[in-house]
Amino acid sequence: MLRIEKLSKTYRTGDKALTEVSVAVPEGQIMGLIGPSGAGKSTLIRCINRLVEPTAGKVMLGEVDLARLGTGELRRQRRRIGMIFQEYSLVERLTVMENVLSGRLGYVPFWRSWLRRFLPEDIERAYRLLDRVGLVDQADKRADALSGGQRQRVGIARALAQEPDLLLVDEPTASLDPKTSRQIMRLLTEICAERGLPAIVNIHDVPLAQQFMQRIVGLRDGRIVFDDRPDVLGESALTTIYGAEDWQAMRQGDDEQAEAEADAARRMAVLAR
């Protein structure tokens, strides 16, 4: 259970990224976070595991207030929070296995990680996770030899290797094609359901969010302006989140893309015949 209370973040430049945001994510819930760029989605997610330092407010994970921890204790708490980034956040020049095992770094002493001598159960877990995301035979490849979708699967395996109590997911599909995006979102939701993991997914693609999320929170200018089930998210709510013009433009873009896809499908069908 994650409870955020009156979280605020003001950057040193004076930009107010978040203003008194309060939200709670219960066990097993997948929450989508939508909003225009610059609304503070990314800041909110990074304030939870303190890659960005919040200015005020509380971040309660169970009984611990993450916003008020010293460096050592923060490291121990970060192990409980798995984070999944855009595809490029794998360490490119390490092997797939090392990338997955790096999820265990918070649990092993430095000499073990330096010599790559992880515990047998860590290695077994890493193989099991790689099998779960369908990449067990790629373990010895270097991460930069993988495709975008494969990298994202490794990223998921790395986050799960931490045995987390919470998943933070930052734009998981930003640089993937539509089909791979859906596969990745399906995998994510399945895994969360299997383990009863709560997750916050920062996502820019509204139809994708509506399809896969159990709950949607809309951010605008650092404040929560929408918080409900995805089927309630309608025209008017989207206008509040994105502003009238942007929303129209976005929908138009979506329509164009859908049209193009349909067109391509038609041509393929013709070709197939």
Binding site: N49, I81, S113
Partner: peptide, 18 residues
């Protein structure tokens, strides 16, 4: 890439190493 390693709860030396 560095941020991703930091987020796993790695220590400073581990972040440098990985």
């Amino acid at each position: 890439q560095v941020e991703a390693i930091e987020a796993t709860g790695a220590s400073g030396a581990q972040v440098l190493n990985y």
